[in-house]
Design a protein around this nucleic acid. Sequence first.
DNA 1: TTCTCGATTACCT
DNA 2: GGTAATCGAGAAT
Length: 197
Amino acid sequence: MPAPASAPNPRGAAIPTAFFDRDASTVARALIGTELRVDGVGGIIVETEAYDTTDPASHSFKGATPRNAAMFGPPGRAYVYRSYGIHWCLNFVCEGEGVGSAVLIRAIEPTIGIAEMARRRGMADARRLCSGPGRLCQALGIDGSVNHARIDRPPFDLFEAAHRQPIAAGPRIGITRGTDLPWRYSAKGSKFLSRPQ
DNA sequence: TTCTCGATTACCT
DNA sequence: GGTAATCGAGAAT
């Protein structure tokens, strides 16, 4: 069938699974500025954290378990876990099958489907809609049902960054071990971070 | 089988 | 600045 004559895609190209065949820190940095959608709702990733099997703060540090099985599965898939019995947290698996590294998505700048996100969150403040791993999962409707799901297939859409931008790095948040590793990355100056970098 | 605590958030003083 | 909410993985018993 003929391709529709449309204007150039304002987004970048769709990101392939091979994008994730690198170490978690590299992927975490590369994800800043990309556009994530879940069922057509989402925005620009502005904050990530890297975790790998050498890292005492990582769920994969002590080896594979039923809970973290997705982390040891193929790269380019989602690892979703429940935090504090209340929240869901979204990770993208990296590096290679059996390696146990992943990137935690911590914050998104909402751009698409803001009304739907506000409805799910029960509030309208754009700055707090997706500024934290638990918050963005609630806004995007993510739960354990997408654990292991491919990121290049529905309900996910992930597009390359439209523009390059400065990236800040620093220590991660909410952990008690591995606090010396500067594996938190963020879009410099973004107003949509879970905490200022 | 029981206990502890977390890659968090919202609401309290 | 402090803490309740809430549940399952992993450790301890």
